[in-house]
Structures are given as C-alpha cells and as structure tokens.
C-alpha cells in the first residue's frame, strides 16, 4: 500500500516512477571534474588508476617509487611513469524557487516540476556515488547545501527545495556570482529556472561559471500556458515579481506575445550555445522521465564522441 505524501512534505519532489525510469542511466561530466574520492569521472590530477597517461623526467622531490626503471635501463635517464586519476563528480543543483516559478495551471507548476527534476537528478548522482549539493535562490541565494556523496544527503537536498514564501528574482548576476563563489573546484552545475530575468546578466553569470570550468546544464522550465497563451475574454494580468498589471483582450495580444516569447527563447538558447552550456527547454506538460532520459542519453553521446575525437 502506497504511503500518501503530504503536500508540504519535501519528499513529494522525489517521484518514484520517474526515478525508476532513469535509474539505469548515469550522469557523467562532459569534462574533467575535481573530486575528492575516486570514482567514475576523470580527475584533473594524476592518480593510481591503471590508465597510463605519460612519462615525465624526474625532478627533485618526486617519489622514486614512480621511476620507470625500464626506461632508465635503456636510456640511463630517470623518467617517472604517470597514470590517470579517476574521481567522483561534484554536482551542484541551482534551483529557482522565486515567485514566477510558482505560476502554473494545475498541481505541477514550474516550481514543482523544477524541484522534481532536481530531486531526480540528485538521487541519480548519489546513487552513482557522486556528490550532489543544492543551491536555491529567489531574490538572493536562499539555501546552500554543499555537495556530499552520501545517500543520506538526499533529505537535506529535498529540504532545501521546500520553500513557503517565494520571493521575486532581482539581480540574477549577483546570484550566479554567489553560486560561483560557493562552489569550490570544478564540477557540474545544473541550473533549473524559468529564466524570467534579464538576459544579459544571466549570460554574464553563465560566463562566470564557465570561467571556473564548470560543466553547466540549464533546464529552462516554462508552463504550458506560457507557451500557448490560451486566454480569452477581458483579463487583468497581474505581473509577478514587481511587473506591472495589464488589462487587455488576450486574444488581441496573443500573436505578439508568442512572437516575443520566441525571440526570448532564441536569445537564451543562442547565449547558452555560445558558452557551451547544455540547454534544455522543458514545459510542465512534458513527461519528466522522458525529458531526463533524452537529455542524459544526449550527454552520454556527446561525451563518447569527444573521447573518440581525442
């Protein structure tokens, strides 16, 4: 018998069906990451794996245990034998919990959808012994849960996503700067947001993250109604997050709205592409498991291709 989950229970974000669907997948970093335990991801440092990397001339201070005597016997020079090190992934989920994320027609609004996606990803990461952390934000960074690899860390992540009084977004650049500063070393950053912010500071924020060599994923969550704008009759649109109100006949503005939306999406997508950021637009009526599967497969393909290219 299934246990009924309460609406304010943080575990509501962890949808078992979705988790089951993506359980056999794994999330890999596209580039090397700096982990603290050995794992499935390449480390920027040399380690003790069986994968030979290179020979290096011996210098003072090197551990003589790594000398390659075969080379010394042939060349009478000291070379040190170096191997690739493998580490675990440190992934930070940056989830937008601002007021605009709470728009949605039905039980799954953008906030719920985004949090569900974040929870699933965290669960998947922890299951593959990667470490996952979370940063939630609205007008400022609201909670920061550092990355941990323990499965018991999951509850902390879920707790962090739960919020009761959403607030508006203001300065996305400062928020992303804060995020950048709060993540030590290179790792993976997954941003889940509706991105209803100014484009320029957002792109700048992404650039900052890129400079830190983070592997960045952007899940752009929009509500179905924001895509179709199906309103009829005189309607007073009350802007969230300090936006003005507008009384209008929505039928008359629909085309213009969709056009502006499309421009915006193009601009965001283009900015992400330019920075090498993986961008995924999702709508709240999309099946989350399908979206995640598709996205993870896509990343795996990209990683394999880049490996072969090397």
């Amino acid at each position: 018998m299934a246990t009924k989950i309460k609406p304010d229970d943080p575990r509501r974000f962890l949808d078992p069906k979705t988790v089951a669907k993506i359980n056999n997948l794994d999330l890999r970093a596209k580039q090397v990451v700096e982990g603290f335990i050995s794992g499935m991801h390449k480390s920027p440092v040399f380690g003790h794996s069986i994968e030979f990397k290179q020979h290096r001339e011996y210098t003072m201070g090197d551990d003589i245990r790594h000398l390659d005597y075969k080379v010394w016997s042939k060349t009478d020079r000291f070379y040190i034998k170096q191997y690739e090190a493998e580490t675990n992934l440190r992934c930070n989920l940056v989830v937008d919990v601002s007021e605009s994320m709470h728009y949605g027609n039905g039980p799954l609004n953008k906030y719920n959808y985004g949090c569900t996606a974040a929870a699933c990803l965290a669960h998947m990461l922890l299951r593959q012994h990667d470490s996952a952390g979370i940063i939630t934000f609205d007008e400022a960074v609201r909670k920061v849960i550092p990355a941990r690899a323990s499965m018991s860390h999951m509850d902390a992540i879920l707790d962090a996503m739960h919020t009761s009084k959403p607030r508006e977004k203001t300065d996305i650049l400062s928020i992303l700067r804060r995020v950048t500063e709060s993540i030590p070393g290179r790792g993976m950053v997954v941003i889940i947001s509706d991105l209803l912010v100014d484009r320029e500071p957002f792109i700048k924020g992404l650039e900052m993250l890129c400079q830190r060599r983070h592997d960045i994923l952007v899940f752009h969550v929009l509500d179905t109604e924001e895509r179709t704008f199906p309103f009829v009759g005189t309607t007073r649109f009350e802007g969230m997050e300090d936006m003005p109100h507008l009384l209008c006949d929505p039928r008359a503005l629909r085309d213009g709205y969709l056009e502006a939306l499309e421009e915006y999406l193009v601009e965001v997508r283009r900015g992400c592409t330019r920075l090498g950021v993986d961008y995924q637009l999702v709508y709240t009526d999309d099946y989350l498991d399908a979206i995640l599967s598709k996205f993870l497969h896509f990343r795996a393909d990209v990683r394999n291709r880049s490996a072969r290219a090397r």
Binding site: L196, R236, M240, E259
Partner: peptide
C-alpha cells in the same frame, strides 16, 4: 478575469 502572470515581459512587449 484576474490572472497572476509570470511572463509579463512578453505580454507588455506585445
């Protein structure tokens, strides 16, 4: 009708 609307930016632009 009253609708609290997130994507106000595009509506205003339209």
């Amino acid at each position: 009708k009253r609708v609290r609307w997130a994507a106000m930016e595009f509506l205003l632009k339209s």
